[in-house]
Simulated assay, not measured.
Amino acid sequence: MQRADYDLPFLLTYENVAWYDNGKVRILDRRIYPTEVCFVECTTYQEVAQAITDMVTQSAGPYTAAGMGMALAAYQTRGKKEAEQIAFLEKAAHAIAYARPTTANRMGKITQSCLEVGRSALAKGANPVEAIFLSTVESLNRRYTIMDKVGKNLIKLMPNHGRILTQCFGETIIGTFLRAAKAENKNLDIYCAETRPYLQGARLTSSCAIDLGFPTTVITDNMVAYAMEYKKIDVFTSAADSIARDGHIANKIGTNQIAIVGQHYEVPYYVTGIPDADKYSKEDIIIEERDPKQVLEYRGIPNTLAGVQAIYPSFDITGPSRISGIVTDRGVYSPYDLDAYFSEEQARFY
């Protein structure tokens, strides 16, 4: 297998996302990167599911962690009767898939695939741990390869010497998009909205951009209008945690307001990703409400007096009227015409 993570930053190397080895899953702790480079070690699939819930990894990272967690589940139940092992893997598949509800449909595709691989291996008398691990690596490589096509399609929309605003951390698309820019000698200035309260834009996106040698500027989330007017942002782009067929997308909280400001300043907004075949409208998107404590403090340091309350909706929904195009592996689609994406047979993604 030719690995598709070549020339990508540290964060996106396969082993630095999530990796199974000898009864453990190591997950890079993105909650504290780049202040510290630390890996969380999980010895049970339940710990992997909890790590996903706790955002030890995020963006597309949980997809890899899910598969590695299934390999770990197979390891946990080794030596038991075949029926017991399958029942254990079924339980693990559900628990890991629903570690974060907004992406449960995507995560479920991965864990169910791993379940079937494990079931098949057991029927053949093969090692289900190895089979699920190899299947997960293959899936990871396939996603990177497909997102490389997305990155190459996105770079076509960028002006040379353009100033590009990002939101949150788009995982693979950030790496493949910037790798494509380098290959085409397209000079870009990257502006990263910090993405409170978790600061994925400040900590993760900016790390990838500076790792690959691009001029990188972080702005606080309330500087977007200023940056668009005075720093002359050319394009706003983000990935999406859900892309419904009706053109509504869900992404990290704050995305919708950036899109609104972008409309005012006539800054196009390009969403990247693969549309969800099973989400037909925004009503099918579940907005995850996370622990408001994350708004009230950062890394254990309180920001408020005791008794102050907070909310933390993890995502918001942006309507098609605010989106200039959905950039996919097959090209750029109008958010009003996403059914066209499904007119051809889909390549397997998850």
Rank of each mutant, 00 (worst) to 15 (best):
E344T: 14
T216Y: 08
N256Y: 11
T44Q: 03
Y350R: 04
I258Y: 05
I233E: 00
G170I: 10
S120K: 15
S207N: 13
S59C: 13
L115T: 04
S281W: 01
E344F: 04
G162P: 01
I32V: 13
V327S: 03
T44L: 01
R142W: 10
G273V: 03
F39H: 05
G67M: 12
F177M: 13
A239P: 05
A250P: 01
T328N: 07
V129S: 02
M223I: 10
G307T: 01
A306I: 10
G300L: 12
A209Y: 09
D211W: 10
G162Y: 10
P62V: 01
Q294G: 09
Q58H: 13
K81R: 13
Y144V: 12
V129D: 02
A60D: 04
Q200C: 04
E47W: 08
A66K: 00
S113P: 11
I311A: 13
S238M: 05
A193K: 01
G170D: 11
S238H: 02
T176S: 07
R322G: 09
G262W: 02
K282W: 08
T13D: 15
K91N: 12
P275D: 02
Y333Q: 01
L154F: 10
P292N: 07
Y280T: 11
V37Q: 09
I258H: 03
P320K: 04
R245A: 08
G213S: 07
A4D: 08
Q346Y: 10
E130F: 04
E289M: 13
V48W: 04
A123M: 08
M1I: 15
L122W: 07
I253N: 05
V137S: 11
T13L: 15
D339P: 12
G331T: 05
R330E: 06
I274N: 03
Q112S: 15
D284T: 01
L296S: 12
R119M: 07
N256K: 05
L154T: 01
T13I: 15
V137F: 10
I32L: 12
F236S: 01
Q58S: 13
T304F: 13
I285W: 00
P101M: 08
D291N: 08
S207P: 07
D316P: 06
D246G: 03
G125K: 07
G79T: 03
A121R: 00
G175V: 03
G325I: 01
D211F: 12
P128E: 01
H94Q: 09
R299G: 13
A60W: 05
E36W: 15
N222A: 07
A87D: 06
